[in-house]
Each structure stands twice: as structure tokens, then as C-alpha cells.
Design a protein around this nucleic acid. Structure first.
Lengths: 345, 345
DNA sequence: TTGATTTATCGAAACGTTTTAATATATTTT
DNA sequence: AAAATATATTAAAACGTTTCGATAAATCAA
């Protein structure tokens, strides 16, 4: 049987309570005693038993992380990275992240993640597009939760948002200032609010420089409502460039799409970036290894995970906090796909 | 405060023990009593408290899943899928999967995953290439563990293996039977035993049909010891095809590499599969959406996760079981990249 | 000096289960 | 009909912590 708090107490010649106080950095305990206890703990390699602590404190020490099943495995590694950020943050804290997925046709009656069903988490992070019924359920249950990169119009929930608008604006502005005249947009589904925002940033940057005339947006935008963004990119680039050969830059709704776009351009035989410049969004790992290396907006995914975790912890400790939104800003990373002398900035 | 077993006992007019027996499907309980208790539980929406159960049973109800950090986020979604398979299996059981990563330069003294440090798991699954020091540590701790898609020469640990050899053999045999004469291999690092096995399958299939003459393997193999397999693929295809234009098929060590290979071939301007056929390995999700759709060997990743979980559960319940290896077989999936009439088989 | 306050320690209850051993009743075997 | 066995229920101990309230000693204010 493993070492318990009792053993430590006996060995250190103090009561269990005192050991517990030291363990939890609470109350008054004389420096000498404290030191003694710590040294004994160390020597005996004492590991407090999770379940016993949790039983006494009535907390679980777990945080749930829920994403849509498709997001987990199909297309993006985006949400896995966010998970990793949370996990890194959790390592320093006293909790574990329980990752689970939900299906599109989620029904709270039958499909409730097990950790919700059995109250095994103190709070939940929801990333990306997620069933509204689930959000409502959590709201009703009064369980602390944060939305990551998602929002519900008209509702004020705790969220971690990405500054999609400004990122897109900056990218397109950069293209304009590099003397690009016909800047296209290739994007996926507009179900997702983030994509909408990126499109808005694209549009408003063009407006700022008076580039949009009648029909511009129709002519130079390509959107398709499917989930496999690489294919969207390849289709989009092909169709747009065949129809409007004057296009000299393409801003893409995300990196996966951008990588498809690049393939499309290459197949047509135009040079990147000299003839057509490409900028993506997200900075997923392959972006850097793509050929040419992809210019993009770096979304600090690990940081987002960390912020989500920290916000959640606050919510757990101060349940009456007013809902807050944290905006995470993004950096324009210039690589080979948009500028000949691809120097990072 | 939530409903406890006490409340159920009182309401049902029985003792706590009886309720517990029903909860755990143990001992003798009269059908009537049982039914009564179950109905009360149901009516009151009783949820047994994890920490209390775990304290009493001295188990954690958690299973750790450890992968190398690079594998998690950089290149492959392979290991995430396996995780998902474990998570699905865990849903039906009474445990949670705790996912964490370790770094290449792992040192058991400092970098021990928190759930190992604090004994918060009953068992561990290790996927892919993983620090040997970690494996040794687990072995010493007598903590049940399973290796997934990895092995240590000379050691007999519990593992879930993929039938890499036969898969590769079958793929290459299929190419031979489709009248391909010059079948190349493009692969990544040989650090990983699975890649070695795939190469062996490639070689032996060629030998079976007496295709290998002097220098064949040197001439037609391309391996590079880096981790970004897409780039390996593109480089490999380019170099091989320029040097040996007679190549009419390429078997790749995995799908990511294969997708790079396809890009490389396309840039050279050869037609797939008419001039060069391509087969990958793994069947990662993008394989199906690639253009052309990628022929590959389907590795049942969810199934692997499930098997790992189940084996682990057995090990936990019967600690003295002899180590066993479970071989998971793979299916050849023919899509567009290898045969003109891409019909699945 | 006395009384109030701060510092330090501890005993004991509480957290919600499982499990062991005891007891009681019903059924089967002799 | 007695003995043995199977069925059904329970009280109480145990699991390893945290925390409340009590107590004691040390320090401070008057």
C-alpha cells in the first residue's frame, strides 16, 4: 500500500491536519514544522491520492473539452492544437483535460458526454462549431463553460475569440500595398462565424482602398458549402483563374484551403507568388513545410488553449463572474507564397 | 447537494449496502428489491460520485494515452484517430482517457506525465515511437501498459501491431499483377519499425516475382530521415522520376508521403495512374479527398484504439497475464491513384 | 498586569462509496 | 426433521483526504 498522509504525519511527528495545511498552503504553520514536513514528504515520495482529495473537496479536478467529431479527425489539426494548449496549462494546475467529441445530430437526452452525465468535470471548453442544444444544456446546468472560436448571435457567453476580422484586413491590405490589383477570396462554409468575419475583413480592406467596384465581390469570391477545404481550394482557384485570368492574389479562408489553392494554381501553370500571391489563415503546421511555404495569419493555438483553461478556472472559482470575451490577436506571417523575398515579419 | 446513495437507500427502504450491490451488479439481491431500487435511482436521477467510488475501490478509472509530441500535432492525424478509438471504447466502460504528450528528449526524472507522477491511471497506452526510458519506467513500476504500433526488439511487451508486412506485400503484388514493371519505394525515417516492415513487404513482393535484379532496390528506393513526410514524397518522386523515367509505380511508406509523391508526379507532368501508379499506407482521412483519390492500405485506427483499450482492461483485471501481441490486419483500398477504373475492392 | 489578537497545532467529523463478515430467511439435501 | 446450503439483507469498517472548531502558546495593546 502506498504512502498516505498518516505516514507523513507520524514520521514528522505532527497531526494529519498540519500535514494537510502544508499540502494546501493554507492557514498558519511554523516555518520549521513546514520544512520538516516537506522534507519528510519528499523523502518518502508521498503522492496525495486524487480520489480522496476530490471526495473531500467536492471537486472533480477535471475539465471537459468537446469538439465536433468531424473537426477532430477529418480536416483540421487546429482543434487538436488548442487541446494541447489546454493540456499544457493543466499540467501546471491540478486538473486533467477530458477530450470527447459530439456528433452533428447531437441530442442531449441520449448523446450527453459521459463526463457531463456523471458530473465528472468542473467546467467545459467547447471548440468550434458545436451543437446549440449542448450549449443550452450547459447553460441550464449552471456548469461553467467557455466557447472557443465560436459564438451565438445575441447571447453573451464566455468566449475566447480570434481576431479574424483584423487579421484578414491586415493580410488583404498587405496584398494591396504590394501592388496586387485583383484580389480574390476562396472560402468554405459560412456556417462558421469565423469565416464570415474573415470575409468581412477581406471586403472592408478592399473598400478602404476603393478597389471594389460593381460586381467585384461576385466576380472574385468563391465559396462552397462543403467541409473538405483542400478540395474547395483547388476547385476555387481553378474556376476563378480560368474565368478571371487577371487575378493576381488569392486570400483564403484558411490554410487547408490555401494549400488546395496553391495546387490549383500550380496545375494551371502560373507562378507563385510572382503571378498569383496566396495568403492563408491559421498557420497550421504543414503551412511551413508546404512548397512554396505558405504566408498566413498565425493563430496562437496553444495560447488559445491556455486562455480557455485559465478563464475556465476563474469561472470555477468565482461562479458569479460576469461573462467575458477574450480576443486573441493574430500575426501576419509572410513566407514564400505571397512575396518573392519571403522574409518573416 | 446532489443525490447520494443514502437518499436512494432511504427512499427505497433498504440499506446502503443493498443499493451498492445493485449498483455494482454483485451478490444476491431479490429481483423485486432490485427493481424497486433501480426505479428510485432512475426517478431521482442518481449519479454515483466518481471520487467516492474510486476512493473505496482504490482504482482511478483512468487510462493514460501517451504519444510523442511531434506525432500529435505535426504530421499525422493517425495517432489522434487511435485516441478516438480508445475514447469510444472508454465510453462504454467506466473510464476516461487522459491524453498527454512527451518530448523526444524525455527524462523520467523530470518529464514524467502528471498522471504517472501521481498514480492517476490504472494503465497506459503508448502509441508510435516513444522514449525507451518511459517504457522502462512503466515496466519497473509494474503499471500495465500497451505499445501501439511500436515494439522493442528482444522485449516481449504487450502490443497492438499493424500487419505492415502483409499490407505492403499485397499492395506491391497488386501493382505487379497490374503489369507495373518498375515499382519504386518512397519512405521516411527508418527509426520506426513499422516503416521497416513496410519496406520489407515491398522487397519481398518484388522478390516473389523475380523483379529485383542487381541494384534494383538502390535505384528505386528513396528514403530521407526527416519527419515531414509530405516534403519527402515530393522530393522523392521528383528525384526518382528524373533519374529513372521508366518508373511506372510508386509504393509509399504512408499516405502523407504519397500525397507529396502525387504532387511531385503532377509537377513533372506525368499522368496518374496511367503513367505512374501510386499506393500509400494508413488511409488517413484526406486520402479519400485527394485528387486523384489515393489508393492505400486501410489501417483500422478506431479498431486499434479499441483493441488497445480492451487489452489494457484485461491487464488491469488480471495482472499476471502473459504478455500478448495482437496483430491488426489491413485492407487494400483501390482508388484512383493506382487504377484507372478506381473501384474499391 | 490583563485582555485581546495573532500564530500554531490538533482532534474529530465529514465527504460518498465499497466490502467484509454477520445474520436471517428460504430452499435443498440427507 | 435436522443439517446443509443458497439466498437476501445489513451494520460497520475502511478508503485518504479536507476542514471546522477547539485549544494552547506567543505576541501585542492598554
Amino acid at each position: 500500500m502506498a504512502i498516505t498522509i498518516k505516514d507523513i504525519a507520524k514520521k514528522a511527528g505532527v497531526s494529519i491536519s498540519t500535514v494537510s495545511l502544508v499540502l494546501n498552503r493554507k492557514g498558519y504553520v511554523a516555518p520549521k514544522t513546514k520544512e520538516k514536513i516537506l522534507s519528510v514528504m519528499n523523502r518518502m515520495d508521498y503522492k496525495p491520492l486524487h480520489s480522496a482529495r476530490k471526495l473531500a473537496t467536492q471537486k472533480t479536478g477535471n475539465i471537459g473539452y468537446i469538439i465536433w467529431e468531424g473537426h477532430f479527425s477529418e480536416v483540421e489539426m487546429f482543434y487538436s492544437q488548442i487541446f494541447l494548449g489546454m493540456e499544457y496549462a493543466a499540467r501546471k494546475s491540478d486538473s486533467y483535460i477530458l477530450l470527447t467529441t459530439v456528433k452533428e445530430d447531437f441530442d442531449p437526452k441520449n448523446d450527453l458526454p459521459r463526463f457531463l452525465k456523471y458530473n465528472d468535470v468542473d467546467g467545459v471548453a467547447l471548440a468550434g462549431r458545436v451543437p446549440h442544444a449542448l450549449i443550452e444544456y450547459l447553460d441550464n446546468q449552471q456548469l461553467p463553460f467557455v466557447l472557443i472560436d465560436y459564438e451565438l448571435p445575441g447571447k453573451s457567453y464566455n468566449c475566447i475569440k480570434i481576431d479574424n476580422y483584423n487579421g484578414a484586413f491586415r493580410a488583404v491590405e498587405n496584398l494591396v500595398l504590394s501592388d496586387k490589383k485583383y484580389i480574390a477570396f476562396v472560402g468554405g462554409t459560412f456556417f462558421h462565424p469565423s469565416i464570415k468575419e474573415r470575409y468581412r475583413g477581406y471586403r472592408e480592406a478592399l473598400e478602404k482602398y476603393n478597389l471594389v467596384d460593381d460586381g467585384y465581390l461576385k466576380k472574385y469570391s468563391y465559396c462552397e458549402n462543403i467541409e473538405t477545404s483542400r478540395a474547395i481550394g483547388e476547385n476555387g482557384a481553378t474556376k476563378l483563374l480560368n474565368r478571371q485570368p487577371e487575378i493576381d492574389a488569392i486570400f483564403c479562408c484558411n490554410d487547408t484551403t490555401a494549400m488546395g489553392v496553391i495546387t490549383g494554381i500550380q496545375k494551371i501553370g502560373k507562378r507563385i507568388p510572382q503571378e498569383v500571391a496566396v495568403i492563408g489563415f491559421d498557420d497550421i503546421p504543414p503551412a511551413e513545410y508546404n512548397m512554396p511555404k505558405l504566408s498566413t495569419l498565425r493563430v496562437p493555438k496553444l495560447e488559445i488553449g491556455k486562455q480557455a483553461f485559465m478563464l475556465l478556472n476563474e469561472l470555477i472559482n468565482y461562479p458569479n463572474m460576469a461573462p467575458q470575451t477574450r480576443m486573441i490577436s493574430v500575426d501576419l506571417v509572410i513566407r514564400e507564397s505571397s512575396h518573392s523575398e519571403g522574409n518573416e515579419q
